[in-house]
């Protein structure tokens, strides 16, 4: 009885580890695909649910990324705004106002959000794993990466995040923030 249970457990363990090996291998492949693009530029549409606003906020614009750490989110509608994450800083500029620059070090929340976006674009698994446990569902052609906070700090910012894509392209990023606010960014190259 006991032996059978141990055997069963061992088989399950093996299966589990084989499954995780397989997932890891695919994840590695996906990340390689992502990392293979030194720069990208795409159109995006964003749908944001903010708890204090009754209606979702819709916006669109272009998203561009350049290796290793330059990310620009250029919103054209409904209100022009330019968000640049570069190196250790993030700056937000709206027309007619001086741009505001913040240091990522100053805010763990900003750091985690920036790492999530740039880590995904760069296919940088190590950066993602600094904050999240990374899990992959699906295959190389059509995949979904699930990010769950791995520590207290990350948990205070993000509840869960999904990144969907195919091959070396990111198609959609969903982030559910710790306070319940949700945002979905759809990316069309």
């Amino acid at each position: 009885m006991t032996e059978r249970r141990i055997l069963l457990a061992a088989i399950l363990l093996c299966l589990g580890s084989r499954a995780s090996h397989a997932s890891d291998a695919i994840l590695g492949q996906i990340m390689q695909g992502l990392a293979g693009q030194p720069s990208r530029q795409a159109h995006f549409g964003m749908e944001k649910h903010v708890s204090s606003l009754a209606a979702p906020v819709l916006s669109q614009g272009t998203l561009s990324y350049r290796k290793p750490d330059h990310l620009e989110q250029d919103t054209t509608a409904p209100r022009p705004e330019r968000l640049v994450i570069d190196g250790g800083t993030v700056s937000i500029a709206t027309p007619g106002q001086p741009s505001r620059t913040l240091s990522l070090d100053d805010s763990p929340a900003l750091q985690i959000l920036a790492d999530t976006l740039r880590g995904t674009m760069a296919g940088d698994l190590a950066t993602l794993r600094r904050h999240f446990s990374v899990e992959e569902n699906g295959g190389v052609d059509r995949w979904r990466i699930v990010l769950r906070p791995a520590g207290n700090v990350a948990a205070q910012v993000v509840r869960i995040a999904y990144v969907d894509g195919g091959g070396g392209d990111v198609r959609q990023i969903d982030i559910v923030q710790a306070n319940g606010d949700e945002q979905r960014m759809t990316i069309t190259p």
Binding site: V50, S59, R79, E81, N179
Partner: peptide
Amino acid sequence: LRDGLQSSASPLVQQYGL
């Protein structure tokens, strides 16, 4: 505040602005 919540800075506006 509403403009802020619609911008990329919405997490900060949520925390300190509201």
